[in-house]
Nucleic acid binder design. Structure first.
Length: 426
RNA sequence: GUGGGAGUAGCUCAAUCGGUAGAGCACCGGACUGUGGCUCCGGACGUUGCGGGUUCAAUUCCCGUCUCCCACCCCA
């Protein structure tokens, strides 16, 4: 048997109904904040990701689906392509390619699949879905303003509330600008040097490869040491400090709760200043339901104009998981099951179905070879609200037997009144 | 990529010491020729994840492999 490949999966009804309703809510909220949808290709030039996400990040170094395209001629080599591991790089590429700064401030959102070759576990797949948004534009349009950071965060709080997610919490930090981070990294390395031999093996490795990750350590014995390490907050320059302060003040003013977490660091190279994460308890170790931050230098590093921006990505698979904790997934029910009865009745039933569906009635069709009992059983299984019997008697009379499946009441209804009666009995 | 657990019917699970696979639910048919849910009767249902090994005999023991779950790494 051919099965879905590792880390991919089929989304089946009724779960797809939950995905659709969640996405509908998301689109509603984006609409209220005047965000517009962008759809970028699911594969891009490999270079786009190595330059934006960062050559040394795990994503680029070992998690991308990359292949070499064919050239024009058989012998010619093609370019290196990659299935997108995240969507911000693609959006910024499109921003540059289509000169979107001509529009001033861009507020863009996307919903779509992303790909990373990781070991699958709860809420983590190799093809996974993200809902994300970006605010990007020239600084003169206000893209650098702390008001944008706060707007994004307030939108997210609204979004999670509207979706019915209970018990989320917002972790907030500032990772400063590039030079702050460089100075901090240096200081952190220095501070680690004398103490790291006393720490766990993971920390010893992190100290070399990615010192910031030392803060993720969960070994109790290491915590006192970690407490003594310098924090990024001590290295922010004055403009970054003020920016971060302003973001917090607006959040307080609009009433969005948050926790400062100066251990929160972002994995991707392009992040600057505000960094954040929303977590949810019901997700196991993968407790981050969304993450994001500011990326003021990204456009320039991709050869574009100066275009500060801020964005986020929601792990949709994890969002749905959290939603399933609270919400029951319900299969939508048909309004009517049309039961043709006897030879030739398929034709009549098809005509009726066409008429009813044209009036937005959700209609399911039976088969003239079914005995009536079987039609009713089928209707019950589908949880149809009504059964409409289409037999010779009905066709002759021009009125059809319509049974309400919940009350058991059955009446004869003239053809012209069917849609009204079916709708009215809901 | 690393470590641990699991894989038996569509689903949830059982099978004693190694003796040749079973239940509930679901499905199909009938009782009941134009009226569902309840009941009764009957039916179909399996490459025991896959491949190899040991054995007279493997769902069971051994090796490999795949997939899922949990955790690590990392991240949404």
């Amino acid at each position: 048997m051919i099965k879905a490949v590792r880390g991919t999966r089929d989304l089946l009804p009724p779960e797809t109904a939950l995905w659709n309703s969640a996405e509908a809510t998301v689109r509603d909220v984006f609409r209220a904040y005047n965000f517009h949808e962008i759809r970028t290709p699911i594969f891009e030039s490999t270079e786009l990701f190595s330059r934006s996400v960062g050559e040394e990040t795990d994503i680029v170094a070992k998690e991308m689906y990359t292949w070499e395209d064919r050239g024009r001629a058989q012998s010619e080599k093609g370019q290196s392509l990659t299935l997108r591991p995240e969507n911000t790089a693609g959006v910024v590429r499109a921003y540059i390619e289509h000169k979107l700064w001509e529009w001033g401030l861009n507020k863009l959102y996307y919903i779509g699949p992303q790909f990373r070759r990781e070991r699958p576990q709860k809420g983590r797949y190799r093809q996974f879905f993200q809902i994300g948004a970006e605010i990007i534009g020239p600084a003169s349009a206000g893209s650098e303003s702390p008001a944008r950071d706060a707007e994004i965060l307030e939108l997210l709080a609204t979004l999670l509330d509207r979706l019915g997610i209970k018990g989320w919490s917002l972790q907030l930090n500032s990772v400063g600008c590039a030079k702050d981070r460089a100075a901090y990294n240096e200081a952190l390395r220095k501070a680690l040097e004398p103490v790291v031999p006393r720490m766990c093996v993971d920390c010893q490795r992190r100290a070399v490869t990615n010192p910031l990750r030392v803060f993720d350590c969960k070994v109790p014995e290491d915590q006192p040491i970690i407490e003594t390490l310098p924090r990024i907050s001590q290295f922010l320059d004055e403009p970054c400090r003020e920016h971060f302060q302003a973001v917090q003040e607006i959040l307080k003013s609009v009433g969005v709760d948050f926790q400062l977490d100066d251990r929160l660091v972002r994995g991707l190279d392009y992040y600057t200043r505000t960094a954040f994460e929303f977590t949810h308890g019901a997700l196991g170790a993968q407790n981050a339901i969304l993450g994001g931050g500011r990326y003021d230098g990204l456009s320039e590093s991709l050869g574009g104009p100066q275009a500060p921006g801020i964005g986020f990505a929601i792990g949709e698979d994890r969002l749905i998981l959290a939603l399933q904790e609270s919400a029951e997934t319900v299969q939508p029910k048909p309004d009517v099951f049309i039961a043709p009865l006897g030879a030739g009745m398929d034709r009549e039933a098809a005509r009726l179905a066409r008429e009813l569906r044209a009036q937005n009635i959700v209609a399911e069709l039976g088969d003239e070879t079914f005995r009536l009992k079987k039609s009713f059983e089928a209707a019950s299984r589908l949880k149809a609200r009504h059964v409409l019997i289409v037999g010779e008697n009905e066709v002759k009379a021009g009125a059809f037997a319509l049974k309400n499946q919940e009350t058991g009441e059955q009446i004869s209804v003239p053809r012209a009144n069917l849609a009204e009666r079916i709708r009215g009995k809901q």
